[in-house]
Amino acid sequence: MKSKIIRKRTKLADARELLLNSFTPPDSCETIELNDSCGRVLAKDVIAERNVPHYDRAAMDGYAVRSSDTVSASDSSPIILRATDEISEGSCVRVHTGSAMPPESDAVVKIEDTSHKGDLIEVHTQVHPGKHVGYTGEDIKIGDKVLDAGHFLRPCDIAMLASIGINIIEVYRKPVVAIIPTGNELVKRPSQITPPPGKITETNSLMAGMYVSKWGGKPQYCDIVPDNPELIGQVIESQLNADMILLCGGTSVGERDHVPDAVDSIGKILVHGIGISPGKPTALGVINNIPVICMPGYPAAGLVCLFEFVRPSLMKLAHINKIRTPPLQARLDRKITSRIGYVTYTRVRLENGNAIPLMTSGAGIMSSVSRADGFVVIEENVEGYEEGEIVEVELIE
């Protein structure tokens, strides 16, 4: 058995880079219905096979005209045209936004630039050819590349794809994340019975799985594994069909903390001990091109690990290049401190533009996470922030 002393504390940025450089994302794809494609990533370029619009259309409510019939029209000297069903010299046709342009017409006079007396229409402004007309292919032409491979599909993108007649789309497969909770103290949920002293309800896999789903992955839940290195190793090996393995608990240096050694016996531990608080015992590894993230059992530490390591790894696996939501700025309600050498995550609540600190320590206090709106992240070379300072708050999704 290897020594469980955490011999080296790796900087956060270095640890994340080591992890992300240790694997390559799979290229496996699937074809799905367009209606189910929100939040997925295109696997191939999309080439338009239909013009948008596919006909010449009116872009305003009004009258379709021959522009040459409106020369010199003005409020003081309107041109009079006759409203008919077809365009000819001296006539016009009533159209609505989106109406097909009648043959021989080349412009639209807005309804507010006209007045009428029966079927006689007074035109109060001159229009040039193409005025208020949307021509065939003006938006998208057949053969245009409308979206690149790797594009993260949003509702507006999906609506655009529907407009060119696409009903199915090829996307990258959702990465499968095996989630393995470990610990003799854990009790499987759901249970209406309060666990006896020394036992707790297992909830880390629930939190982790929901974030995996939110970030574009597919959770693959495993049963609780006791603090037994052989059993932990067996379960890890049984999950090597996944794209990522996430272990919850068993990462510290106690007698029952076997997870990092179990991973190292099958693959390679890249980092054990990271300069983050909470979350120092986090371990990161790789097995056969599969990233393995060993998050601490305390909920607040586990949440930091999810945001800092699971999310970026999952984004890479899913081919998602989406930019993270920028932090909010708020005024600090009171002073907060940190340890030099550690990136510190202070849980805060937001109220009327103020960031109210809840906790810096206390990684096991789950309520401090659920009451928090986000974290104030204190960099490793900063001792803290004073009351009244403007700070950035990373929101808890």
Rank of each mutant, 00 (worst) to 15 (best):
A107T: 00
L120V: 03
R66C: 07
A149M: 09
D139L: 15
E112Y: 06
P155H: 10
K44S: 12
L147I: 06
M60A: 15
S91C: 07
S72K: 15
E86F: 13
R154G: 05
P102F: 08
D106F: 05
D144I: 03
A100F: 12
A107Y: 00
A107E: 00
E122A: 13
S115H: 03
Y55K: 14
D144W: 08
I121D: 00
R154Q: 14
V71M: 13
Y63Q: 05
A48W: 13
D75E: 14
H124S: 12
V133A: 03
R82Y: 10
D113W: 01
S76T: 12
N51Y: 12
S91D: 05
R57D: 03
R94Q: 10
P78C: 06
K141M: 07
A83T: 07
V71P: 02
V127D: 00
P103E: 12
E138M: 13
H54G: 08
H151P: 02
K110A: 04
V133H: 02
D75I: 03
D139A: 13
S74I: 05
G137R: 01
R50C: 06
H151T: 15
R82E: 10
M101S: 02
I79F: 00
S72V: 12
I140V: 15
S72D: 14
I142E: 09
D85G: 11
P129V: 07
M60Y: 09
S68M: 12
P129F: 10
S74C: 08
R40V: 02
R94W: 05
L120M: 10
T70E: 00
A107L: 00
S74Y: 06
C92K: 01
Y55C: 07
V52N: 07
K145R: 15
R94C: 05
V109T: 03
T136H: 09
E122Q: 08
V109I: 13
L153Y: 09
D106I: 07
K117V: 09
T70H: 02
R82N: 09
E122K: 04
A48Y: 10
G150K: 02
D157T: 14
V41W: 01
T136M: 14
R66L: 12
T70R: 01
P155R: 09
V146R: 12
A59M: 08
